[in-house]
Design a protein around this nucleic acid. Structure first.
Lengths: 158, 158
DNA sequence: TGCGCTGAGTTCATATGTCAAACTTAGCTA
DNA sequence: TAGCTAAGTTTGACATATGAACTCAGCGCA
């Protein structure tokens, strides 16, 4: 039996004041997290995300709408040779700042839910050093999120 | 119009191999993230979480069940003076490792979704230094998750 | 000019999940 | 033994997710 030491009866702050709550309301669902993953990887098209994730069309439409409305993603027209204008969905600055959330999830998932080596790792664009998400001193300098490169390890590309 | 440079047509790894996907299936929903928050804060009782989060009973039951089944939380009997045996829900080692995910969410939410100062901050238990989640060099030493203390800033306790 | 293609979005019927409230259960005190 | 309370289950109304079919608009091409 555990002792009763350090049992807390309620959280130190009310829900409405809680960043976790506000963030979870906005991006705390499976598909939204996966859409952010796609965006991090550089997938920008509706149909590509659709195929990649196996997400229902209507859900992808609704999620992208919410992300755009909340300034996490941006919807821009673009044009390839010999085809009509389409729209790309990319992360805004605010959206890019969610990188640590996705990477933290990835690290945890790779470590505890996969029984294989991590299929992808992060590298610093310039130094080539491996990167990780971690708790560090507030004062210590963080790497810029824009300096990340993905390195794919030994998994067959489809 | 954007150029088409660096558009990726699909993610570099298949979903089934993806740590983000596996993690998102398991903990990627609003209530589960909030339950993890409660656990981090030290709330351990069913009824306390219920009151604190305003989560429906049946949903809390189901979520805790899933977390216990997947070895993220542990269900232990405990006993207070003059009351019956109850069960406490606490994080397992695997669950504690999700701290960076929750903290990353908190940081982002506090920064972009609140218009006030962060209601809570993290401190190193010994040094008292402020902490943050960040991308760092893989080699750099991370702080132990067990050395965290919460510091509550200027928000009225209910 | 009109034909057909394709990316993006909408609509539909069905299935599944969420919700609040009421009810059940088990273990304790008195 | 009665009554209390924390935890869990059931209920039925409602909301959201799902997969398939359908719509729509802009474009290349004949």
């Amino acid at each position: 039996m555990k002792t009763t030491k350090s049992i807390r009866r309620n959280s130190p702050i009310p829900l409405s004041q809680c960043g976790v709550f506000l963030a979870a309301e906005l991006i705390g669902d499976k598909w939204t997290l996966l859409i952010l993953r796609e965006a991090l990887y550089g997938v920008v098209r509706f149909d590509d995300m659709l195929n990649d994730l196996g997400i229902p069309r209507a859900v992808l439409t609704a999620r992208l709408k919410r992300l755009v409305e909340n300034d996490i993603m941006r919807r821009d027209p673009y044009r390839e040779e010999n085809s009509r204008t389409r729209y790309s969905y990319t992360l805004t600055d605010q959206g890019i700042e969610l990188t640590p959330v996705i990477i933290a999830l990835m690290q945890w998932g790779d470590r505890y839910l996969r029984n294989d080596a991590a299929p992808i790792s992060l590298m610093h664009k310039d130094t080539g050093n491996g990167l990780k998400v971690a708790l560090v001193d507030e004062q210590s300098s963080a790497l810029s999120i824009n300096d990340i490169t993905l390195k794919i390890n030994d998994v067959e590309k489809r």
